[in-house]
Design a protein around this nucleic acid. Sequence first.
RNA 1: AGAGAGUUGGGUGAGUGGCUGAAACCAACAGUUUGCUAAACUGUCGUACGGGUUAAACUGUACCGGGGGUUCGAAUCCCCCACUCUCUGCCA
Length: 423
Amino acid sequence: MLLVNQIRENYEGVLAGLQKRNFPNAQAILAQALEIDDLRKSTQTQRDQIQAESNAISKQIGALMKEGKSDEASEIRERTAQIKIQIKELEDQNSKAEDDLKALLYTIPNVPHSSVPAGKSAEDNEIILENGVIPELFPGKQPHWELIKKYDIIDFDLGVKITGAGFPVYKGKGARLQRALINFFLDEALAAGYTEIQPPILVNEDSGYGTGQLPDKEGQMYFATADQLYLIPTAEVPITNLYRDVIVTEENLPIKNVGYTPCFRREAGSWGAHVRGLNRLHQFDKVEIVQITHPDDSYETLESMSAYVQGLLQKLELPYRVLRLCGGDMGFTSALTYDMEVYSAAQERWLEVSSVSNFETYQANRLKLRFKGDDKKTQLAHSLNGSALALPRIVAAILENNQTPDGINLPKVLHKYLGFESI
RNA sequence: AGAGAGUUGGGUGAGUGGCUGAAACCAACAGUUUGCUAAACUGUCGUACGGGUUAAACUGUACCGGGGGUUCGAAUCCCCCACUCUCUGCCA
């Protein structure tokens, strides 16, 4: 969430940013936040003063009791009754103001970076780069949902039998392709200086709030009711939460972590014609990169993460494009997001395979993720993450783009991981 | 799942109603001494939110797992919850 001081010190900037997102009633909400904060401060000042008085009296009573002057002590004690009522009242007002402020701040999205284009929907996203060659396929080309049947490598019907729709079973070369991609992505990240993390894939409620999945996206996560645990929708949740309530030393920045996990998404109500086959699943595999940086470095880091993800796509020889998301299409918590899309040549569609975002202090504020430098001051760090990469759509594009009448030729870079070259 | 023990500052750990925001030790940081290192000595050494300041200094309040209660006063007493550890059971 935003800091009130951010709003106070840069009111015009925050307002303009929220308007770029088409955030309704921005002006009224910001004004309200400041008003509640003023109330919060004034009630705290009053409460603290009276509390100080009360503390002084208590000390005095203690001293008198020790001297055996119990008459005087009980005389003073009578005065405390009224003070207690006052404290209670101010305390209530103050904590209500705090709660109100927090509740309000939870509803305000992050302020977009200045480079974020205005716009309402995916239509307004800015295509900043296109790379790679879109293959010319032969007349009998098939979409991946046909190919996986033809070569018997991914089985949706079996998944339905043992679990339900959206839980595919990978078989034979299909399973090995999954494993090869995961290993390839992890090895690349290691070579780029990331430390590998293998986190739990169920998380508690605190972690859900830490990265912002709760309270907003509660219905999107699977929930194990007996133990009150959520199945993670992305490794971002457990990995970023490693740094919840942590004050890191400045010299340890940037922190670079990578993790492979399965991801679980209920995707309630978002099924339709465009989500056949591997395009949208309830369970899928993803390698995620996370960085915690000094605020001065986060945008440079974002560019490097974007370049890193593009490098993966180049090595996989997939045609891709990079979008800078517009204010209206960007995630709630992000300040700047690049989406990477690969071209899936049989579906003749661009598919989102990665989303790389800088959250600035928005997540760090919730997480209480801070760093301390030489000046001994603690301040909020910046957090970033990106998919590197999500497997299913990569698999879809690899299968479709490399198909021939005689089989599917797999990218060279995967051969040593696969132990075979084609399907 | 059953029984028991526990949760204090970066770490170990003392503390059963006022002298405790918290002993002591360790770690860390700064300085003195030293040819360097080490050792010794001295000092600093939690967080949050207020007030105050150009910024500091300074200052108030809260926080000893979380929440509530008793009391003039709670780390300390009472209640509820969460978590951790040990033993037993089960199990990859």
